[in-house]
């Protein structure tokens, strides 16, 4: 197969069928073809995590996944985390704890943090730091991001 390849992907809950170039990454297709620009481009070598999305239940660096690899899969981007325009608990916690400065890394941070909380309901500080170590923040809000994830987990537990 070369040229444009037809794929079907469920993106943020919506089934979509479109064609992609074999050498285009999931990141490029999300941003350029689907105009989902919340997912950010930075290092392109899987180091910074700005392009983090959830693919089939697991977070990945979308710069290191070819779009064709997602064929038949389910992708969740930052745009899929707020429902009906309402911020998720986690998104609110990021604002309350002061975890957002320039904001460029934040979509990746939030997708990664959301994944962590799906796996571990009440993560320790160490687990949060490890779970988000693949997301660089040059404003270095790491303490605040950790606090936000812990606060969201605590609020979630309180709500249950």
């Amino acid at each position: 197969m070369s040229g444009r390849i037809p794929i079907q992907v469920t993106v943020n809950g919506r089934a979509r069928a479109f064609e992609v170039a074999a050498h285009h990454t999931l990141l490029e297709v999300l941003r350029d073809d689907l105009q989902l620009t919340g997912t950010k481009e930075c290092c392109l070598v899987g180091e910074c995590g700005a392009c983090t999305v959830r693919l089939d239940g697991r977070i990945v660096d979308s710069c290191l996944v070819l779009a064709v690899e997602a064929d038949g899969g389910e992708v969740t981007t930052v745009e899929g985390l707020a429902s009906d325009g309402r911020l998720s608990r986690l998104q609110g916690a990021f604002l309350d704890e002061g975890a957002v400065q320039c904001g460029f890394c934040i979509p990746g941070q939030i997708v990664a943090a959301d994944d962590l909380l799906r796996r571990v309901a009440r993560p320790t500080v160490g687990e949060i730091q490890e779970g988000l170590a693949g997301n660089l923040c040059r404003c270095a809000c790491y303490g605040q991001i950790t606090a936000a994830v812990a606060a969201a987990a605590a609020a979630e537990a309180g709500a249950r």
């Binding site: 989902l36 620009t37 919340g38 997912t39 981007t77 930052v78 745009e79 985390l81 707020a82 911020l87 998104q91 990021f94 604002l95 309350d96 002061g98 957002v100 904001g103 934040i106 979509p107 939030i110």
Partner: peptide
């Protein structure tokens, strides 16, 4: 909460 924060946590910031 920071002004402009909403768009930064939802991916809407351009």
């Amino acid at each position: 909460r920071r002004v402009g924060g909403h768009d930064r946590v939802t991916g809407l910031q351009r």
